[in-house]
Design a protein around this nucleic acid. Structure first.
Length: 224
DNA sequence: ACCCAGGGTCATA
DNA sequence: TATGACCATGGG
């Protein structure tokens, strides 16, 4: 259950409080794809170190990443954690990308086909796929994560535990009903996810209301 | 020392 | 469908 009419008011308050976030931190679609895998259950500060290593080794390149020995790749991304698993996942994703004609090939696919393809890669789940769709390819897709659930649940905007697809489609169609065009939704989804991450990093860890939360007293703890 | 972080897969019931 | 084990580093 989702009170989709409250999504935009909450968004406006977050934007007013934190300002424009200018996500994703990354210079190219390839870097965003790599970052999306590396950030799986990892702190972004650690992911940055891994990406610096890749750049310094002159290896943030589709062909190089595909051809590199898995162990060598694992060594470079070590600070991101789960380095053996993530080295394999990166190569799964990037070799599949090559087979589709590289990043340009992916950008030519329609959103539904691209999403299906990404989800078919071992190591790419719904959140990683949607990060890539939204931030690397600018598709109108809302990224659901643990923070999103925590925030919506504490605000009472979401009740129960809808699965990933149900929540994502609920939020997306909710903003269609609010009259947003496709480009507007893409921009809002981009900003919204970034703002939720900011909110939960600073205020909503596993603590009760800190008193400084920009969402104020409507936030109830515990829920997520 | 413990907990968590911008998840996902696989085995099991 | 729904848990649980597993992957592993670094910061609080």
């Amino acid at each position: 259950m989702l009170q989709s009419g409250r999504l935009l008011p909450v968004y406006d308050r977050l934007l007013r409080h934190f300002g424009h976030q200018d996500w994703w931190p990354g210079d190219s679609p390839l870097e965003i794809m790599v970052g999306a895998v590396l950030t799986q259950n990892a702190a972004w500060t650690n992911v940055e170190k891994a990406i610096v290593n890749l750049k310094q080794a002159d290896s943030l390149d589709l062909s190089r990443l595909c051809e590199m020995e898995a162990d060598a790749l694992a060594g470079l991304i070590r600070p991101a954690g789960y380095f053996n698993v993530k080295a394999a996942r990166l190569q799964n994703l990037l070799r599949w990308t090559q087979k589709q004609g590289g990043v340009d090939g992916l950008s030519r696919m329609d959103t539904h086909a691209l999403r299906r393809g990404l989800l078919g890669v071992n190591g790419v789940g719904p959140e990683t796929a949607d990060d890539i769709l939204l931030y690397a390819f600018e598709r109108p897709v809302f990224v659901v994560d643990a923070y999103t659930r925590r925030m919506l649940s504490r605000l009472g905007v979401m009740q129960g535990k809808p699965d990933y697809e149900l929540l994502r489609s609920g939020i997306e169609s909710g903003l269609v009903e609010e009259g947003l065009s496709e480009d507007e939704r893409t921009a809002v989804f981009n900003e919204y996810h970034a703002l939720i991450v900011m909110l939960c990093k600073d205020f909503c860890r596993s603590r009760p209301l800190c008193g400084k939360c920009p969402l104020g007293e409507s936030c109830s703890y515990p829920e997520g």
